Simulated assay, not measured.
Amino acid sequence: MNQTIEITVTPDGQTRVETKGFSGAGCREASRFIEEALGKRTSERTTPEFFQVADERQRLQEGGG
């Protein structure tokens, strides 16, 4: 899957940064420079992909790999 970062700017000046195709905290690393340039983060919503790496690690540790 392609990795992309989508930035949306609304008419009232609010911005939203959305990452696609990343798993785990890789999305935060990839978008950090954009978020720093835009200013203070007001909220964060994680997607199922964010938890994907943690779930895979847990399954491997439990012997289900």
Results as ranks from 00 to 15, higher is better:
K40T: 10
T15E: 04
Q3T: 15
L60P: 01
T10C: 07
R16L: 15
N2T: 10
E36W: 03
R41T: 15
T10Y: 04
G64Y: 00
A25H: 03
T42Q: 12
T15I: 01
T15N: 05
I5G: 08
Q14I: 05
A30G: 14
K40Y: 01
S43I: 03
F51W: 02
Q14N: 12
T10Q: 09
Q52A: 12
E29C: 08
R32M: 10
V17W: 00
F51T: 06
M1P: 06
F50K: 04
T46V: 11
Q58K: 08
R28C: 10
A37Q: 13
Q3L: 04
F51M: 05
F50D: 04
F51R: 10
S23K: 15
G65I: 02
F51K: 09
G65T: 03
T47M: 14
E35M: 10
G26R: 07
C27P: 05
A37M: 14
P48A: 03
F22Q: 06
F33T: 12
A30T: 06
E6S: 11
Q52E: 07
G24I: 04
K20Q: 12
V9Q: 14
R16S: 13
E29N: 13
R16A: 14
C27A: 15
T42S: 11
P48M: 00
F51A: 14
E35C: 12
I34S: 06
Q14K: 13
G64Q: 12
T15A: 14
C27H: 08
I7R: 15
Q14H: 11
T46D: 07
E18R: 13
T8C: 12
Q3A: 12
E6Q: 15
E49A: 12
G13L: 03
R41K: 15
L38T: 08
G65V: 03
Q14A: 12
V17M: 05
R59H: 01
E56H: 01
P48L: 01
R41L: 15
T47K: 14
